[in-house]
């Protein structure tokens, strides 16, 4: 739902980031307002997963430039757990297995950390059980999964449902779902997408990262962004996704080449105009 007067939740400005000294994000600009659903599409290696990891604060990624404001405050200065507590959520493409740590305990600790930040009182084990059982409905998940270790031995679909369950418990303002559709059969996809749709509201924003149209058949985005070579190349409505599906990504390569060529020229021109002293 697009409302031009809705408050800005996330503002990404010329974001640059690298991993192991390899630049991946090369100037991403993106603004999310409350109520909006955005989809970022692109090929493998276009930088879309990196964008999600950088926003969540993964320690392997180094921000080299630009800024990210979350409701007007600097997001990048915060530890990953602080980002989560104030309402940023990353649904992982590959949720991690943590043997020995009970799923229920994990969900409770996470939920209470968020509630504390929101000024709500912590839930004791009983109150939390009630809450979690209610939220299980969102993803039609078997309560038996609560007794197991976090994601351990879960199938791909079960892991993704567990992600959406966490989202349902944490009630984020900005949810970034990284390839949530990957590895899901059609039934699981419907359940997961149904969960996302239920949780989307006028107060929060969702950023879907995907490279297939099929997720967007069940979750309708307000905006579609095409990402390539570490930046957003084009932005449009949901019809852009259909266009991608039809035309493929080859045109993107052409455009990127053109863009990079012009940048190189500009760079060369800038260097050429410097005096030798400045270069030295």
């Amino acid at each position: 739902m697009i409302r031009p007067d809705a408050p800005v939740l996330l503002e990404i400005c010329d974001l640059r980031a690298s991993v192991e000294e390899q630049p991946i994000l090369k100037g991403v600009n993106l603004t999310l307002r409350a109520g909006e659903i955005h989809a970022v599409m692109g090929r493998n290696g276009s930088g879309k997963s990196t964008l999600s990891k950088v926003l969540a604060g993964h320690p392997a990624y180094r921000v080299t430039g630009g800024s990210v404001l979350y409701r007007g405050d600097d997001l990048l200065a915060l530890q990953p757990e602080q980002r989560a507590r104030i309402g940023l959520f990353l649904g992982f493409q590959y949720p991690v297995e943590i043997p020995g740590v009970s799923n229920l305990e994990f969900l409770r600790v996470a939920t209470n950390a968020r509630r504390l930040e929101q000024g709500l009182e912590e839930l004791d084990t009983f109150a939390f059980e009630d809450l979690v059982r209610e939220r299980l409905q969102v993803v039609q998940m078997d309560p038996a999964f609560l007794e197991r270790s976090v994601n351990e031995g879960f199938s791909g679909g079960e892991k993704k449902r567990n992600e959406i369950l966490q989202m349902a418990l944490l009630q984020p303002l900005v949810a970034i779902l990284d390839e949530t559709d990957s590895g899901l059969d059609i039934d699981a996809l419907r359940i997961v997408a149904g969960g996302v749709n239920q949780l989307a509201s006028a107060d929060n924003a969702t950023l879907l990262i995907t490279h297939y149209q099929r997720l967007l058949d069940v979750i309708t985005p307000d905006y579609v962004h095409v990402m390539a070579a570490g930046r957003i190349l084009r932005t449009g409505g949901k019809e852009l996704a259909l266009e991608l599906e039809e035309r493929g990504y080859d045109w993107v390569d052409v455009e990127i080449e053109r863009l990079e060529a012009s940048e190189l020229e500009a760079l060369a021109a800038a260097q050429g105009s410097r005096t030798p002293a400045e270069v030295g």
């Binding site: 969540a56 604060g57 993964h58 320690p59 530890q79 990953p80 757990e81 980002r83 989560a84 507590r85 959520f89 990353l90 992982f92 949720p95 991690v96 297995e97 943590i98 994990f106 600790v109 996470a110 950390a113 968020r114 930040e117 976090v150 966490q166 944490l170």
Partner: peptide, 11 residues
């Protein structure tokens, strides 16, 4: 694993 827990608000 650490990052996963952190990204859920756990210190």
């Amino acid at each position: 694993q650490l990052f996963y827990l952190q990204s859920r608000g756990i210190g």
